[in-house]
Simulated scan of single mutants.
Amino acid sequence: MPSASRPDLSVAVWRKSSYSNQEGGECVEVSDNYPGLVPVRDSKNPHGPALLIPHHAWAAFIAGLKGGCPAGR
């Protein structure tokens, strides 16, 4: 992906999952305020790469985690 089309994540405000514990275990962090995208990174590697997930795919993923994914999808 060309760098011109990638958002500037150096200014991102990251948040951990509400299911993360305070012991610094295996956690993911996400950032809001990127229209159409949900940046996701490993909290143990904050300067490493981040995945850029399309918003609709992230919403479907979260719905599936919550048991809202229709059978067969």
Rank of each mutant, 00 (worst) to 15 (best):
4 A>T: 12
4 A>D: 15
5 S>L: 11
6 R>V: 13
6 R>L: 13
6 R>N: 13
7 P>D: 02
7 P>C: 03
7 P>H: 08
7 P>Y: 01
8 D>R: 01
9 L>M: 09
9 L>Q: 02
10 S>M: 08
11 V>A: 13
11 V>T: 12
11 V>K: 10
12 A>E: 04
13 V>N: 10
13 V>F: 09
13 V>S: 11
14 W>Y: 11
14 W>A: 00
14 W>D: 01
14 W>Q: 03
15 R>N: 11
15 R>A: 11
17 S>H: 06
18 S>Y: 11
19 Y>D: 15
20 S>M: 11
20 S>I: 05
21 N>A: 12
21 N>G: 15
21 N>C: 14
21 N>W: 00
22 Q>S: 15
22 Q>H: 14
22 Q>E: 15
23 E>P: 09
24 G>P: 00
24 G>T: 09
25 G>N: 08
25 G>L: 08
26 E>A: 15
26 E>T: 14
26 E>H: 14
27 C>R: 03
28 V>F: 02
29 E>Y: 06
29 E>C: 06
29 E>F: 02
29 E>W: 06
32 D>R: 04
32 D>M: 10
32 D>H: 11
33 N>W: 03
33 N>K: 04
35 P>G: 10
35 P>M: 08
36 G>I: 01
37 L>T: 06
37 L>K: 01
38 V>S: 02
38 V>H: 00
39 P>W: 01
40 V>F: 08
41 R>E: 00
41 R>V: 05
43 S>Q: 11
44 K>R: 14
44 K>G: 07
45 N>W: 14
45 N>D: 15
46 P>C: 05
47 H>K: 13
48 G>H: 03
48 G>R: 07
49 P>W: 04
50 A>I: 01
51 L>F: 04
51 L>H: 10
51 L>W: 03
52 L>I: 08
52 L>F: 09
52 L>D: 02
53 I>Y: 01
53 I>R: 01
54 P>L: 03
54 P>Y: 03
55 H>V: 08
55 H>W: 15
56 H>K: 12
57 A>Q: 09
57 A>I: 06
58 W>A: 00
58 W>S: 05
59 A>N: 12
60 A>T: 05
60 A>L: 13
60 A>R: 07
61 F>D: 09
61 F>M: 07
61 F>W: 08
61 F>C: 05
61 F>L: 12
62 I>F: 08
63 A>N: 12
